[in-house]
């Protein structure tokens, strides 16, 4: 893929991730603090179309801009810690264990590590590891459902995008 084309694609992906990041804030989920993690779909797609480095760029830009859009600067640290940890985890699983894991499995693992990253950041900020233990079980339950759903969406989106990129 040409450099300009790749850059344009990444810019589009970032803007889509941003929109998803923003609108999911309006969608209520059963547990306090739980989110659909729709922006993770774009991270997965970038990871599988381009690679680890590009996925990290998308995560970082999305987290910073998304937090500014949301209006709370403290949100950046939670967004970044979760996004980066889940990005690393998914990249590792995708590059090493892709043979054994379905896209839903990788996405679920990503959701799990996103929650762990955010809770570790919260525990660190509040100086109490109890936060991690208190909120992890309920967030894990949500991660199973949202991770599966996001994996499914990524699967169909990737199938479509791959053929489009080949045609171009």
């Amino acid at each position: 893929m040409k450099k300009t084309r790749k850059m344009t694609m990444l810019a589009l992906i970032v803007s889509q991730a941003l929109v998803l990041h923003y609108i999911e804030g309006f969608i209520p989920v059963l547990a306090p603090g739980a989110k659909l993690g729709l922006a993770n779909i774009m991270t997965m797609v970038t990871l599988m179309l381009f690679g680890f480095k590009e996925a990290m760029v998308v995560v970082i830009i999305r987290s910073v801009l998304g937090s500014l859009l949301g209006g709370s600067v403290t949100g950046i640290i939670y967004s970044l810690s979760g996004g980066i940890l889940s990005g690393i985890a998914m990249a590792f699983l995708y590059s090493r264990l892709e043979k054994y894991l379905s896209i839903m499995g990788i996405s679920t693992a990503g959701a799990v590590f996103h929650n762990i990253g955010q809770l570790l950041a919260a525990s660190w900020i509040f100086g109490s590891i109890g936060i991690l233990f208190t909120y992890l079980p309920i967030l894990m339950l949500a991660a199973v459902a949202t991770g599966y759903f996001n994996g499914l969406v990524s699967h169909y989106l990737l199938g479509y995008l791959r053929t489009r990129i080949r045609e171009a």
Partner: peptide, 23 residues
């Protein structure tokens, strides 16, 4: 689903168990 998916779910169950123990 592939065979490795089950390990993701096992990992989740272990994490939940660990956090209850930690608490």
């Amino acid at each position: 689903p592939k065979i490795g998916d089950i390990f993701v779910y096992i990992f989740i169950v272990v994490l939940v168990g660990l956090s209850f123990l930690g608490l």
